[in-house]
Each structure stands twice: as structure tokens, then as C-alpha cells.
Amino acid sequence: MTAQQLNPVVQEFVDALNANDQDRLSAILTDDASMSDDGVERNLTQWTDSEVFSSNGRLDVETIGDHGTELVANYTNSRWGSMLTTWRFTVRDGKVSRFETGQA
């Protein structure tokens, strides 16, 4: 991992995802949070249920950029296995208001 650190809000998102803690992840998202996967807008609740919580998703951060709001990570879940992914986060008022992910 690079010397740059994750933005604290993004770090909380990663920690909550890796803990498979739905309440904790929900608490770090704005009420109107949105997301996309490989450039396609997705329903955030359905996506996290499928890709994170029911399939034990895990992010292992490899590199960090853009002041800690962009990362490249090895993402693993029981549905797809492991793949190198990019993640870009928009932080607003101390919460994640949007994230975009996709294969690197």
C-alpha cells in the first residue's frame, strides 16, 4: 500500500464492509447515497446485499490516491472470487454520498 492514508470516512466504509457489518456500513452512508458498478448505476441496497453481505465481501487495499478517496483493492467475495477493483468515493458531511467501483 502507498504511504498515503485513506480518508477517515472511506476507512470506516472499508472497515465496516470487511467486518460484514450492515448497520455500520449503513451509518457511514448518506440517506441519498448512490453507487455504480462497472459504470452501471445500481440500487445500493440490493448491490450491498448481494455483493457484500450475503457473499462475505472483503476489500484488501493495494493503493490509495486522490487524498484518500480513491483506491485500488483486491475485492473478494464468495460469488465472484477475487478481482482487482477500483473504488472512488465522494464524501459529504462526514459520510459517503457516492461510490463507484469496477474492475481495474
Rank of each mutant, 00 (worst) to 15 (best):
V72T: 06
V72Y: 12
D15Q: 08
L44T: 13
L84K: 15
V10F: 07
V52Y: 02
N77P: 09
V96D: 04
D31C: 01
T45N: 10
S82I: 05
T45Q: 11
A19I: 07
D31T: 04
T90M: 12
L29E: 06
S36C: 07
V10M: 08
V10N: 05
S26K: 11
T2M: 09
R92E: 14
E12D: 13
S97K: 09
T2H: 07
I64E: 00
Q4D: 11
D15P: 01
A73T: 01
Q11W: 07
S34V: 11
A16D: 08
G57K: 08
R42K: 12
A19Q: 12
M35E: 09
F99Q: 06
G68N: 14
Q11T: 05
T101D: 10
S50K: 11
T2Q: 07
W87Y: 13
T76W: 10
S54Y: 01
V96N: 07
S34W: 05
D23S: 13
G81L: 10
S55V: 03
G57L: 11
V96P: 08
T101S: 15
L44F: 09
P8H: 02
T30G: 02
D37W: 14
N7M: 03
G65M: 09
T30Q: 01
K95R: 06
R58C: 02
Q103N: 15
Q5V: 14
W47Y: 13
S54I: 00
S34Y: 09
D32N: 14
A33G: 05
G39R: 09
D23L: 10
P8W: 03
T101G: 15
E51K: 11
T85C: 11
S26Y: 06
Y75M: 10
Q4E: 11
T2D: 12
M1C: 13
L84N: 09
N56A: 12
L6R: 04
D60H: 02
T101P: 05
Q4I: 09
